[in-house]
Design a protein around this nucleic acid. Sequence first.
DNA 1: ATTAGCACTCTATATACTTGAGTGCTAATA
DNA 2: TATTAGCACTCAAGTATATAGAGTGCTAAT
Lengths: 342, 342
Amino acid sequence: MKLDARKLKILTTIVEIYIDTGEPVSSKVLAQHNFRVSPATIRNDMAALFEMGYLEQPHTSAGRIPSHLGYRIYVDQLMHCKPLSERERSEIDALFNVRDPDPDRLLEDAAQALADHTNCATISTTITPKTVLVKHIEVVPAGAHTVVILVIATNGVIKNKVCRVDFNISSEVIEFLNQFANGRVSGKSVNDISQWYINSIAVTLGDYSQMFTPVLATIYELCREINDGQFYTSGSANLLGYKEFGEIARDLLLTMGNRDQLLGVIGSKNESVFITIGKENAQSELTDTSVVVTKYRIGAQNSGAIGVIGPVRMDYAKLIPHIEYFSQTLGKLLAETFEQNL
Amino acid sequence: MKLDARKLKILTTIVEIYIDTGEPVSSKVLAQHNFRVSPATIRNDMAALFEMGYLEQPHTSAGRIPSHLGYRIYVDQLMHCKPLSERERSEIDALFNVRDPDPDRLLEDAAQALADHTNCATISTTITPKTVLVKHIEVVPAGAHTVVILVIATNGVIKNKVCRVDFNISSEVIEFLNQFANGRVSGKSVNDISQWYINSIAVTLGDYSQMFTPVLATIYELCREINDGQFYTSGSANLLGYKEFGEIARDLLLTMGNRDQLLGVIGSKNESVFITIGKENAQSELTDTSVVVTKYRIGAQNSGAIGVIGPVRMDYAKLIPHIEYFSQTLGKLLAETFEQNL
DNA sequence: ATTAGCACTCTATATACTTGAGTGCTAATA
DNA sequence: TATTAGCACTCAAGTATATAGAGTGCTAAT
C-alpha cells in the first residue's frame, strides 16, 4: 500500500483538526475539507492509514485520531510551520527588552513567557560547557565573622554565598584572599574546580590553610553550582487545562517538580529543535505528552536548553517557530551582554 | 440550647473522623467511639449541633460533616495539638543543619520541607521591617563595560545585579564608587532608598552624576527588591491529591502561581499562628481551603511569614505544631547567623 | 433524659432501552 | 480500476426505571 498524495492530505487534515478540536475526526467532516471525493472514498483511505499504523480508533463507531506515529510523520514531513506574526514577534522582543539582562532572571522570564504563549509547561536550563571560565571572584566582608563570596563566570552567571569564618576580618586578609582566589581560580574552567583542585591550592597556604578552608570550600560550592547550571520550570498548571490529562494530571505535575527527571528530559540531543512524541519518551510518566526542546547558543557554543511539555495533541506548527524564536533571542541577548566582555 | 460536654465531644469526634476519612460521619460510627449512649441519643445531639450551625448535611440520608463554623470551634476550643514526635523534630532539625545558611535558600527549603511534611501547598516570604538596613555595598568589575553590584542587608539578604556602564572601569573609579555608595547608602533603611533619595545623592556628584546613573539605578533596584522581600511557594501539586478539589483544582493552582494574591493571603495579622478556615477567607478562590500562617522572628522583629494552604479538612492538630516549629527554627537560625554581626 | 423501633429520604448501583454518529462492506457505476 | 451509494452493524452516551442500603427524624416506651 502506497501513501499517495490524497492519503497524506487526509492524514495532515486529521492531525490538524484533532489538534484543534480534540475530538475524533470522521470521514464526513473530512469530506467537507475540499477533498473532491465522497466520505466513502475517504473511509477507504482512512482504513488504509489505520492499517499502516498512522491512525487510531477510540472505538468502532468513532472517527479516527492520529497515532503517535501519525504525529511523527506529520511533524517530520507534512507540517507547514506557521511563522510568527509581527505582533507575536514584537511581544517577545518587548519582553526581553530590558536594560541589564541578568541571565538567571532572563531564563526564568523566558520559561514563564513561553508557558504563557504556548499554554504548556516549560523548562529552561543552562548547560555549562567546559569553556565556561571563572572570570572573577570577590570576597566581601559582611560581618564580624562572615564574608560573602561572589563568583562571576564567563557565561554571565553570577552567584554569591555567605561563608562563616573564624579569623579576624581585616582589610589585609580580605585583600590577600581576593588576590589568592583570583590568582588560583580565575581563568580556570568552572568544571575544573574540583574538590581535589581546591585541596591542592589549600596546601600551598601552609599554616593558613586550615583558617581559610571555609572560604575555599565556599568557592568550590559556588563553582559547582555554576557548573550544574540553572534550572527553571513554569506553567505546570497549564497542563491541568487539557482534558486528556484528567487522571494523570497529578503524576504529571509531580514530574514537573522533579528536577532530576526533567534534566533527563531535556536530554543530550543536538538538533536545533528536538521533538519527542508520546510513547517516544523514555520516561513512562511522559508517554502521553510531547516534549519540544531547543538548545540555545551563546556564540558558537551550546549554552542551555529551553523546552516545552504539553499534550501530544499540541500545535506543533505554531509552537516550533515560537520556541525557535525564543531560543534565538535568548542566545543573542546573552551573547550581546557577555561575550564582548570576555 | 446549651453546648454540654457530650455535644462538644461529639463535635470534636466528628471533626476528627471527618478530617481523617473525608466521609460524612454517622451516628452509628460515633456511637462506637466510647460514648456510653445509643445512636439515637447521639442523633438528638447532632440535630442540636446542626441547628446551631456547627454541622452540615450533604443530603438527608447522609451523616454529618463539620461546617466551617464547626471547624472554627474545634480549632479555637476543642482541639488538642499533637506535639511533634522526637523523630519529626529531628528530621526538621537535620534539614536545617547546614553549615552556612543562606536566607534565600533556607526559606525555599523550608517551604518545600513544610509542603512535604503537611502534604499541602506552602508559601514563605520575608517581610522587611523598617529596621532592616543596608549593611554593605560592593561594586565589582565584571567586564569591559559591566560591573556587578552586591548589596548586603542586615536581615541577611544578599542580592547582586549586573549593570552596564559607559565609563572606563579603572580601579580608581571602582574604589570611588565603593566609597561613595557605602558612604551615602550603607546604614540607611532599605525602605528609605527611594528613587527620590537616589536622585538627591546623584546631584551631589555634579558632572559625574550622568555617568554613574546606571550604577545608582541598580543600587536602587536592589534595595527595592530586598525591601519587597523574597517569596517562595512549594507543593502546589499536593493539592491535586484531595478529592474535594476535583473541579476547582485548576483555579487553585493558578492562584498558587499568583504572587500578589498570595501576598494578600499571608496578610497582616499578628498572632503567632493565624488560621482562616474556608469561607473566612476573603479571596473567593480560597473559600474551600484553609490557610495557616505564622510569622517568624529574627530576634524581636517580625521578619517573615510561612504559611500552609490546604483543604478545610486539614489536620490542624498536627499541622499547627509543625508550622510553629518550622517558624521558630527558621527564626532562630537566621538570628544566629546574622544578628550577632550587626 | 434516653432509647428502641420504624417509616421515610436520598444516593448509589445496576439494568434495560433508545438514539445517533460513524464505520465497513458490497454491489453498482464511471 | 477508482469511486460511490446504500445499508447493516457497532458502540458510546443519554435516559428511564428499579433496587438496595445507609442514615436520619420522629414517636412512644422506659
